[in-house]
Amino acid sequence: MGASGWSYVTPYRGSAGASLEALQGEVFAQKYGDGEEYSTIKELYADEEFMEEEGTHSILDIRRVVESTKLPRESSTEDYFTVRPLAPARVLIHFGTVRPTVQQYEDAIAQSYAFMQAWRPGDRDTSLLGEHEMPWTGFYVLLHTDDKITHIGFFGSSGD
Rank of each mutant, 00 (worst) to 15 (best):
E26M: 08
T77Y: 15
Q111K: 13
G14V: 10
R124S: 07
D107I: 03
R124A: 11
H57N: 11
V66Q: 15
D146F: 02
M116P: 00
E43H: 07
L23M: 12
G2A: 14
S127V: 04
V102Y: 11
R84W: 09
I109P: 02
S158P: 01
I93E: 15
A89P: 00
T77V: 15
W136S: 03
V27Q: 00
Y45K: 09
R73I: 02
G14I: 11
G153N: 07
S127I: 02
Y12I: 01
Y12G: 00
W6K: 00
G5D: 12
H151L: 07
Y140P: 00
F50N: 07
M116V: 04
G2E: 15
D125M: 01
T145R: 09
A3F: 06
L92R: 13
R63N: 11
Q111P: 00
H144D: 07
E26P: 00
E49G: 01
L44C: 05
Y45I: 03
G156R: 10
I41P: 02
W6F: 14
A22P: 01
R64H: 12
P85N: 13
D34I: 01
E36H: 12
E37T: 06
Y8I: 08
F50E: 09
T10H: 09
Q30K: 10
A18V: 00
E78Y: 08
D47M: 09
I41D: 01
P11C: 06
H144G: 03
